[in-house]
Design a protein around this nucleic acid. Structure first.
Lengths: 200, 200, 200, 200
DNA sequence: CATGAATGAGGCTTCATTCAT
DNA sequence: AATGAATGAAGCCTCATTCAT
């Protein structure tokens, strides 16, 4: 259906040019584009350039491939968030860094994997979610720490948990409409999102 | 897994207590809870209380059921938006009305169908999307008209299209975390969302 | 491989001419002839005259078909043993009845199912063996009762358990070599076996 | 399921401690325990302590391994029979020797290989059976010679072929129930079997 | 309109075997 | 000889859809 070229997908983190990494890159792309359930292992193998049976030398099951895509997405982007936070001096700068980094995650090189993480979350069992949830909590606590600082400065009203959820809705929602080279760039989008998050 | 009771699902719009409506209510529930691809027609028939073959007397295919759920969701909620707009006198009041109505759509009685509309959008073909897209444009134009008015009042910065997308991300994102009877009510949530949308 | 004719296989007990019974007759034949693991569901379906997918309307899995064959075999032959015992007046007559009935089971109309019961026993899990084991115990207790009576009469030496096991080896072993219309008939075989079992 | 230790399996005949012999010992064990079809070459290789691909340096195919196990079983036990016969002076003593030797084959050090020989006989093609059948005939003719002698003495009634088959059923059947260190020893079992074979 | 057995294409996975290293 | 990744055929099973009753 989509004989897309694998080498056009950026190798990042564990999704490198090893056999395993190439499967994950193709899987992130196809699971995002078509959905997990509608993607067959044969399509996936075709895109990777191997036989479908060979997938099972690298992963125990189709499920395991999905989990691995999600894990790579969250590991990589957790690193990005840690990095973003160290760059900012003031809480406002740190929030802007987080927003920019999250928008990059969602719309940049890891967009496929991130969308899979959000959209196919219910396709994995609770047991499989468990290790990912631990990382997700760490991820979210970075945001809450910054937002709590901003609340002390009076720049954030309301519950910081609610505030984070609204921001996260806004940023993750960009996956559904944002086009690079469209009417607005990612940094501009970050600026607009920051403006919404903070008191005028 | 889901021996849920059909009569606990609210009959709304075309999802009434006719045979067709009962199928749609069950479908909205199951497609939301398990995903379209992971829901079998047998499960659906079981929940409705008929045999799987009988579904095809009411709908041409499983796909057609999905489309009908989406159509009911969008028709009903378009009505709600029209109603919300007539209630407000000032643009700010009208925006608040829209936000509140959209949050009700997403988290209230039509939550299953709305989630299906968003999450399973790519499961239908472009031809099937077409009639829905027309209604969606009408839906979105209601928002843009109000936001344009607010921009004239200086209460909205930036591109109103971008503004709408960020709001829509925030509101639709609530489907992933909002719990009725949780730490915040829907009207409070609308208040918080409105505060983000407008300049302090 | 073996386009054998289904209607040549005798309908007995639960293996009647219902769809389910026809599957069981074919399964008993093929599992005996080729072994359970070497028989594919497609071969089985072909012999029954249905599509392979249709098998799964009647049985949950290939495993379940094997279990059902075994169950039918043991249920039917347990009945035969009960009947045989009521026909004999003296213990010797009853033993002869049991031997004859068992040889009929193994070499007569239920030969395929009986061979499957013995040869594929380890192909089913312990949980699946459980209900069958209960019937098997009843089956064996019929033999032990008769042999214990004979021991009191002095016509059997040794442990009756051992005696039964040797007889059962001899009778079940006939499955590997006995040919109807060969050099000896089943009643003659029963006579010879009885002679071995009892003291001269 | 079977992390059994290879060195616990007795090296006998061609199943010595050479690479080839170690494969055969493991194969006999696994093919008996799980069945030929349910044993994978990977399991076999794991038990031997090599990679699955390496098996094919020693044997042309999985089939060839099965044939070799059977061949070793029959060669070794044919020797044992020849030896047993030379030990007895009278026909009765020779028959007892054969029975004892066969029971040792089936329940002693070669039990796995012998069970494979019987239970998996139909898993090999007729061409593969051919060389084994020649040895089997030699094996069986040893028995018939002794039984014919006994018939002349009046100690055996009936057809000696039938007699042998019943004895063989009884002895081979022990594989299904006999436990060393159980209620009876192999020599006692031989005694009981001999008593059945001969006129009181 | 409803039933439910049957279809048959297609899904995921296993596994004996090969072969470049 | 040994390795172990890759193969590709084949296996079991699922499921939307049809149709005779």
């Amino acid at each position: 259906m989509t004989p897309a070229l694998l080498h056009a997908l950026p190798p990042i983190g564990g999704m490198d040019d090893s056999p395993r990494g190439r499967v994950l890159r193709a899987a992130a792309y196809l699971f995002h584009e078509q959905g997990y359930a509608r993607t067959t292992v044969r399509e996936l193998a075709l895109m990777v350039g191997i036989q479908s049976g060979s997938l099972f030398h690298h992963f125990k099951s189709k499920d395991a491939i999905l989990c691995a895509v999600m894990e790579e997405a969250i590991i990589y982007n957790l690193q990005q968030m840690h990095h973003a936070i160290t760059q900012g001096v003031t809480p406002t700068e740190r929030l802007k860094g987080l927003i920019l980094a999250e928008l990059e995650s969602i719309n940049g090189k890891t967009s496929h994997a991130m969308s899979v993480l959000v959209y196919e979350w219910n396709a994995i069992t609770e047991q499989q979610q468990e290790p990912l949830l631990a990382m997700r909590e760490e991820y979210e606590s970075l945001w809450l720490t910054v937002l709590d600082d901003l609340k002390l400065e009076g720049k954030v009203d309301h519950d910081t948990f609610i505030c984070r959820r609204l921001i996260s809705g806004a940023t993750f929602g960009t996956a559904l409409w944002f086009k690079p080279n469209g009417r607005i760039s990612i940094p501009e989008l970050a600026e607009a999102t920051l403006a919404m998050a903070l008191r005028g």
